[in-house]
Measured scan of single mutants.
Amino acid sequence: HESKLSILMDMFPAISKSKLQVHLLENNNDLDLTIGLLL
């Protein structure tokens, strides 16, 4: 999960990174759901 998140972070600009982190917190680190929201 950690490395997947790092790769994902590299793919998005800074603003999207903050949104990603907020979504991860709100969704209890449900990375798949977060990716779904961003794609």
Rank of each mutant, 00 (worst) to 15 (best):
S18T: 12
D32R: 09
L25C: 12
E26P: 02
G36Y: 03
D30E: 06
T34I: 03
M9K: 07
S16C: 08
E2D: 08
S3Q: 10
S18H: 10
L38P: 03
L39G: 14
L25V: 13
M11P: 02
L31M: 06
H23M: 07
L39Q: 15
L37C: 14
N29H: 08
K19L: 07
P13G: 01
L31N: 01
H1M: 15
S18M: 08
D32M: 05
L38E: 03
L8S: 00
S16H: 15
A14Q: 12
G36F: 07
S16F: 11
L37Y: 12
H23G: 04
V22S: 10
L24Q: 00
L33V: 13
K4A: 08
L8A: 00
L39C: 09
H1K: 15
K19G: 05
S16D: 11
L25R: 13
K17G: 06
M9L: 14
Q21R: 09
D10E: 13
L31P: 00
L38G: 03
H1V: 15
L39I: 06
S3R: 05
I15T: 08
L33H: 03
I15L: 09
D10C: 08
L31G: 00
P13R: 00
M11R: 14
G36R: 13
I7F: 05
D10F: 03
K4D: 14
S16M: 04
V22D: 10
S18R: 11
D32V: 05
L5S: 01
L5N: 02
E2H: 09
I15C: 13
G36S: 14
I35D: 01
L37D: 11
H1C: 15
P13I: 01
A14K: 14
A14T: 07
L39H: 10
M9R: 11
S3M: 11
V22G: 10
D32Q: 13
L39N: 14
I15K: 07
N28T: 04
E26T: 08
E26N: 15
N28S: 13
A14D: 08
H23Y: 07
Q21K: 09
K4G: 06
L31K: 02
K17I: 04
K17H: 09
M9P: 00
H1T: 15
Q21C: 10
K19S: 10
N29R: 06
L33Q: 10
L39E: 15
N27A: 07
K17E: 08
S6M: 06
K17Y: 10
F12L: 02
A14W: 11
L5A: 02
S3H: 12
N29C: 13
T34D: 01
L38K: 00
D30L: 02
K4I: 08
H23T: 10
L20A: 06
S18L: 09
Q21H: 08
K19N: 14
D10G: 09
S16A: 11
Q21W: 04
M9C: 07
N28W: 03
L24P: 00
I7A: 14
F12M: 03
G36P: 10
I7Q: 15
D32F: 03
K17N: 04
F12S: 01
I35E: 07
H23Q: 07
L33D: 13
N29Q: 13
T34P: 00
L20V: 05
E26L: 05
K17L: 05
D30Y: 15
D30M: 14
K19P: 01
V22L: 09
D30C: 05
F12T: 03
N28L: 08
D10S: 05
M9G: 12
M9D: 06
I7M: 13
K19A: 10
L37M: 11
A14C: 09
L20H: 03
N28D: 13
V22M: 12
D32K: 12
L38M: 10
I7W: 04
K4L: 08
I7C: 15
E2L: 14
H1S: 15
E2N: 15
D10H: 07
H1R: 15
L25E: 13
K4P: 07
S18D: 07
I7R: 10
S6A: 13
K4F: 05
S16T: 06
L20C: 10
I15D: 05
K4W: 03
Q21M: 09
S3L: 06
V22F: 13
D10N: 09
M11D: 02
H1G: 15
N28V: 03
D10P: 03
K19H: 07
E26Q: 07
D30S: 06
I15S: 06
D10A: 04
M11A: 07
N27E: 07
D30G: 02
N27L: 05
L8M: 02
E2I: 15
P13H: 00
K17A: 07
L25K: 08
N28E: 12
L31I: 10
L25A: 14
D10R: 08
L24M: 05
M9A: 11
S6C: 15
E2A: 08
S18C: 14
P13V: 00
D32T: 06
L24A: 01
T34Q: 01
L33N: 14
L31C: 04
I35L: 07
V22A: 12
L8D: 00
L33F: 05
V22R: 13
P13S: 01
S3K: 09
I15Q: 09
F12K: 00
F12Q: 01
L37S: 13
A14G: 12
N27R: 06
L5G: 01
L20T: 02
T34A: 09
L39F: 09
I35W: 03
L31W: 02
N29W: 13
N27S: 07
E26C: 05
I35N: 03
S16K: 08
K17S: 08
I35S: 07
L33Y: 12
L39K: 15
L33C: 12
L31S: 01
I7E: 07
D30R: 06
T34C: 09
N29M: 12
S3W: 04
T34K: 01
T34V: 12
D10Q: 06
L33M: 12
E2W: 04
S16N: 06
N29D: 09
P13D: 01
T34W: 00
D32A: 08
N29Y: 11
Q21E: 11
K17V: 06
T34N: 05
L5E: 02
P13W: 00
M9T: 10
M11N: 06
N28K: 14
E26K: 09
M11H: 05
I35M: 10
K4T: 11
L39T: 14
L33P: 12
I35R: 14
H1L: 15
L5T: 05
K17D: 05
N29A: 09
I7G: 03
K17F: 04
L24D: 02
H1E: 15
G36T: 12
L37K: 13
N28M: 11
H23N: 11
K19C: 06
E26R: 11
V22W: 07
I35F: 02
E26S: 08
L20W: 02
N27F: 03
N29T: 04
N28Y: 03
L31R: 01
L37N: 12
S18F: 13
L25P: 00
M9E: 11
H23D: 03
L20E: 02
L31E: 02
E2K: 15
S6T: 12
I35C: 08
I15W: 11
H1D: 14
L24G: 00
L38Q: 02
D32G: 09
N27I: 03
K17W: 03
N29F: 10
V22P: 03
L8W: 00
K19Y: 04
